[in-house]
Amino acid sequence: MLDFSPADWQAMKLSAWVACAATLLSLPFGIGVAYLLAFCRFRAKALVDGLINLPLVLPPVVVGYLLLLALGGNSWLGQLLGRFGIRIIFTWKAAVIASMVVGFPLLVRSIRIGLEGIDKQLLHAARTLGAGWHDTLLTVTLPLAGRSILAGMSLMFARSLGEFGATIVIAGNIPGVTQTIPLAIYSYSSTPGGDGMALGLCLVSVLLALVVLIFNESMVRRLNREERR
């Protein structure tokens, strides 16, 4: 079996951690924005929709560079955070933020489709049965959108695992600190004799992706079974 260096193990751990953190942190916002886009009518809807989907069509490097401008030491946001002793650029937090921004459109898109597919009459029925707005959200809306929320989370998790362009700009490629699996593979592939290790990390990537897919599939099947019972 391949002999991974401590830095490789670190990269795997970091990748998993960044993907988990990015997915879970984005989830409440993703649900909120998807709800807004699916159910509310407001004038700036097209603009909001466009802004959220922008990272999907922009080169990730551009996203990373814009984030660097926004969060760097010279920006007002960076200075504000600096005053509280928080540094984001070139730390794992930057990798999480990069993944969040890049994966967010996938999450919102998926949840939105699920919400739009819910029969509004069911929500009306819940309201006339005495459930308030948030009660309806928790007991009817979200459970009915469960499958698409899961699908969105899987997509986002997978996208975060693969995030490269934005991460390398904003978080750098510091082994043991901000080096995730894709960055490590990139480093190995540009080092003479690193092909074997690059391939090993590729296999890990494939494995992780498969685990995510299988987990998603089994959760969806469980939800289906509960509904059909």
Binding site: Q121, L122, A125, R127, T128, L129, A131, G132, P143, E226
Partner: peptide
């Protein structure tokens, strides 16, 4: 709001919660 009115509705389609 609907939940404050205590007015029940039986809808045209039964609208039972599928989950």
């Amino acid at each position: 709001r609907p939940e404050q009115r205590h007015v029940g509705v039986v809808f045209q389609s039964s609208n039972l919660f599928p989950h």
